[in-house]
Design a binder for these strands. Structure first.
Length: 878
RNA sequence: GGGCGCUUAGCUCAGUUGGUAGAGCAUCUCGCUUACACCGAGAGGGUCUAAGGUUCGAAUCCUUAAGCGCCCACCA
């Protein structure tokens, strides 16, 4: 027998165990045709950061899925990797450079990229090791990175294919521009922040008339680029002005007054100033009405020459003040009102977005290109269809609606970014003849014969490459064994916050490129919040829990459990240290339950293996039955992704059934080594996916050849269900619980032993057999077990089922108190009996409720009646 | 303006198809009984947000309302 420490100290074991798993190849599956594949693509953490609670959650959930399926005999691939995270990473490095007084422009493109690469290599290693810390059983031999050669090839190939299909085009359109990042952003990369702004009312004189039209705006500086004023056609105030022109103040330009139903009559003055170059709505209206646009703000958020010499070069804010001042001088500024509006900001750096017109690359989401039978459908339609038809199932299903809503409203996706860190567009220009060449391989020369070709300086939106993740990581565009075997992947597990950013993009890109879904199931977890329900923010260490600190303090297993138990998919989870400490206690409980077993068995027991013949006592049959039911329930829960339920059930079994009863009963002559070992091994197997480290650490003491990670998942065995014994044991528990309860109520010191008399009727033999257990657990001095007898005076009396139990606590008994206790008890029982009687007298209930429900109630009623009679008899003696 | 989620014991939450409410922590009372004080035994604590409805029966299904939170949308 090996020495086992009294308490489990996680940090002493975890790294070594992980290392053993990894080096033994346990995480690396084969493309074994005899097995079924089970695949998860790990959502690639950004290559910049460190592990946070979001990552830790996803790793815990996915690892549970993977380990479970591995034990069920699947060929399981969990493919890890990292994402280059274009804008996020570039921003980080730019910030670091700024500290040294450097900028990326001073450095130049090539050197800057080297700088980023250096930075990324460092932090990728950090991330890798932190993923290991979480116990993630992912296949490191297949690790990928979005900028790998292979993945880059996939990116270029998809780009070219889409271009050739007419899905990718270059266009001059209004885009979200972040002046700080100097780049475009996709629509969903824009965040909104409420701000206290001012709504300015400005008078525009109507040409050739002594009239004005007043417009309201929060951005007066954009008026320099106004090209129209729009009103609602039904607006009586302005009907007569439609078709006329106004003279745009400060610019002295004539611009038309047009009518469009989109204009809200009730907002402001009901007249909308239109700046198509700097407002998305205005741009749409302008396109509809063929109104030109004038760009007055440039990509650095400075005013352009078009804004006029007076304003050129001013910042937006300066221009705003100057415009207001000038309008005021002319008496055209009517008034200003306080106003709250939503300011658009960059989701990465929080800088206000400037909408402006720019020449960019887009993916056409509404163009019918994908062949579907005889007709062609768009990317969007295809992405909607696979979810509608159930080819992809989203858990929880309420997110279907959210997905549909988003997909339906999707506009053409702007994919070009003016940053340097990322996949450069495979687009080449010939300045000689103006030819545009789109090609995965750099072209040698233009068809006009020119050799000097210029590659587009822009890079692709990060989500373009992430969208290919499930298949680019498996080797596409090459026809690899992995791709054939592991794709489509089985489950995509991630936080609901990137449903649009990523999940939707993967569905679009994969259904297009591979004509199959990227994954069959999407499992969405919630966000981790503080105990108060607030978001955890890195900037506020008081609210922010660092998973690595928690691992050091409580162990990985405890942390994992705190993400799983009590969590429901799609709902946020509040996390706090006491919770983690609680699960640490549970992990220690597992440790000690095992320790007890190991201290009480010999090596020969460990080696002998378990047979059904080893089951001897009623307690054995009871715990074995409980275990079988646990296997059944937990398996069912795991199959249905109910990890919280599965975890809770194992927790309760371990602590309440196994430790509090079976282990306690095992102390003494009842000890049955084979059963103890069988229960322990099965339990460790069942809970291994949740707490891999402590279970594997214990496994080393069990004389098994293989590591626990390879162990087969237990099967439910109906031959090990003993219904009768379970009922008897539960009655025994009840009796012991009653005795303990009375002892406590009467203040009997735990060390003091008392006497008891049980009239057990037809269960006399059973109780006789369990005499030792009752005496031990009830802490009895002397126990009499008889079929029946006289009521015992000067004793506390208990009536359980049809049993009578007496504790003659003579000197402790307070007759008055005992009388009150029994009176109280009988009141409760009588009340319950009344309810039951009414129910059973209700013909509707008897006829309509299921038979077994009625039967159950009848039995309960009989029990109640019997107890009440007995208590009444006893009361009459007082 | 649309849509979604939450509201259950002091706190954090479970409660799978409707059958008289559960856990952990916290509180109180005891206790070092040969696995564990990261423990054991016992106790208290809930008209399941409110009001209607369906049903023999509702925390669970339907309707309405309130509070909190989130997402989407082109109120300038």
């Amino acid at each position: 027998m090996k020495e086992i420490e009294k308490a489990y100290e996680a940090y002493k074991y975890e790294d070594e165990i992980y290392n053993k798993w990894e080096t033994s190849g346990a995480f690396t599956p084969n493309t074994d045709k005899k097995k079924k594949p089970f695949t998860i693509s790990m959502p690639p953490p950004n290559a910049t950061g460190t592990l946070h609670l979001g990552h830790a959650t996803m790793l815990a959930i996915q690892d549970i899925m993977i380990r479970y399926k591995r034990m069920r005999g699947f060929s399981t691939l969990w493919l890890p990797g990292t994402d280059h995270a274009g804008i996020a990473t570039q921003n980080r490095v730019e910030k670091l450079l700024a500290e040294k007084g450097q900028t990326r422009h001073k450095l130049g493109r090539e050197k800057f990229i080297q700088e980023v690469e250096r930075f990324v290599e460092g932090s990728r290693n950090t991330i890798r090791n932190q993923i290991r810390k979480m116990g993630a059983s992912c296949d490191w031999t297949r690790e990928r990175y979005t900028l790998d050669e292979g993945l880059s090839r996939a990116v270029k190939n998809v780009f070219v294919k889409m271009y050739n299909d007419g899905l990718i085009y270059r266009g001059n359109r209004i885009v979200n521009w972040c002046p700080r990042c100097s780049s475009t952003l996709a629509d969903d990369e824009v965040d909104y922040k409420e701000q206290e702004a001012k709504l300015y009312y400005i008078k525009y004189p109507v040409a050739c008339e002594d009239d004005f039209i007043t417009v309201a705006t929060v951005r007066p500086e954009t008026m320099l680029g106004d090209t129209a004023v729009a009103v609602n056609p039904d607006d009586k105030r302005y009907k007569k002005l439609i078709g006329k022109t106004v003279i745009l103040p400060l610019q002295n330009r004539n611009i038309p007054i047009i009518a469009d139903k989109h204009v809200d009559m009730n907002f402001g003055t009901g007249a909308l100033k239109m700046t198509p170059a700097h407002s998305v709505i205005d741009a749409e209206l302008a396109q509809k009405h063929k109104i030109q646009s004038i760009q007055v703000i440039n990509e650095n958020a400075k005013m352009t020459r078009e804004a006029g010499v007076k304003y050129e070069g001013l910042s937006v804010k300066e221009a705003r003040n100057k415009v207001l001042e000038d309008l005021n001088k002319l008496g055209l500024l009517v008034k200003e009102e306080a106003f709250t509006n939503n300011l658009s900001i960059c989701y990465r750096c929080k800088t206000p977005i400037e909408p402006l017109i720019s020449r960019q690359w887009f993916i056409a989401v509404d163009k019918p290109v994908i062949k579907e039978g005889s007709k062609k459908i768009s990317l969007k339609q295809k992405a909607l269809e696979v979810v509608k038809k159930g080819k992809i199932e989203i858990v929880p299903d309420r997110f279907n609606k959210i997905y549909f809503n988003w997909m339906n409203n999707l506009h053409d996706w702007c994919i070009s970014r003016q940053i340097w860190w990322g996949h450069r567009l495979p687009v080449y220009y010939c300045d000689e003849c103006g030819e545009v060449i789109v090609s995965a391989e750099p072209p040698k020369k233009c068809k006009c014969g020119e050799f000097r070709l210029r590659q587009d300086p822009d890079t692709l939106d990060t989500w373009f490459s992430s969208g290919l993740w499930t298949f680019s990581t498996l080797g596409w565009p090459d026809k690899t064994k992995d791709l054939d075997y592991f794709h489509p992947t089985s489950v995509m597990e991630t936080g609901y916050d990137i449903l649009f950013f990523w999940i939707a993009r993967m569905i679009i890109m994969t259904t297009y490129a591979l004509h199959e879904v990227p994954f069959e199931k999407v499992y969405l977890h919630g966000l981790i919040r503080t105990r108060e329900g607030k978001k955890m923010s890195k900037s506020d260490p008081a609210t922010c829990i660092d998973p690595l600190d928690m691992i050091e303090k409580y162990g990985t297993d405890a942390l994992r459990l705190s993400f799983i138990i009590g969590a429901t998919p799609g709902n946020d989870l509040r996390l706090y240290e006491e919770k983690i400490a609680g699960y640490r206690n549970f992990v220690n409980k597992i440790w000690n339950a095992s320790r007890f077993t190991l201290m009480n068995v010999d090596e020969k027991h460990l080696k002998s293996g378990f047979k059904i013949q080893h089951i001897k006592t009623r307690a054995d049959k009871w715990i074995i039955t409980k275990l079988q039911l646990l296997i059944k329930d937990v398996t069912d829960d795991m199959e249905n992704f109910r990890f919280s339920e599965a975890g809770t059930k194992i927790y309760n079994f371990t602590w309440s059934d196994y430790c509090d009863w079976y282990v306690e009963l095992s102390k003494g002559e009842q000890l049955n080594p084979e059963v103890l070992i069988y229960i322990l091994k099965t339990l460790l197997t069942l809970i291994h996916p949740f707490v891999p480290f402590v279970t594997e650490a214990l496994w080393t003491h069990l004389e098994e050849k293989d590591m626990l990670i390879h162990r087969k998942w237990p099967e439910f065995d109906k031959n090990m269900i003993f219904t009768k014994e379970v009922k008897e044991m539960e009655l025994l528990h009840q009796v012991i619980a009653y005795i303990r309860s009375v002892r406590a109520e009467y203040g009997v010191a735990p060390a003091k032993k008392v006497n008891a008399i049980i009239y057990a009727g037809n269960k006399t033999q059973f109780f006789e057999e369990k005499r030792d257990s009752i005496m031990k657990m009830g802490r009895l001095e002397k126990l009499e077990i008889l079929e029946k007898g006289k009521k015992v005076p000067k004793a506390v009396s208990l009536f359980v089922s049809d049993l009578e139990i007496y504790l003659p606590l003579s000197d402790l008994i307070d007759l008055e108190k005992e009388k009150n206790r029994l009176t109280k008890e009988i009141k409760i029982l009588e009340q319950e009996m009344m309810v039951l009687k009414n129910k059973l007298n209700n013909s509707n209930f008897v006829s309509k409720a299921p038979k077994e429900v009625v039967e159950k109630e009848k039995i309960r009623l009989e029990e109640l009646k019997s107890s009440i009679v007995k208590i009444n008899d006893k009361l009459n003696e007082f």
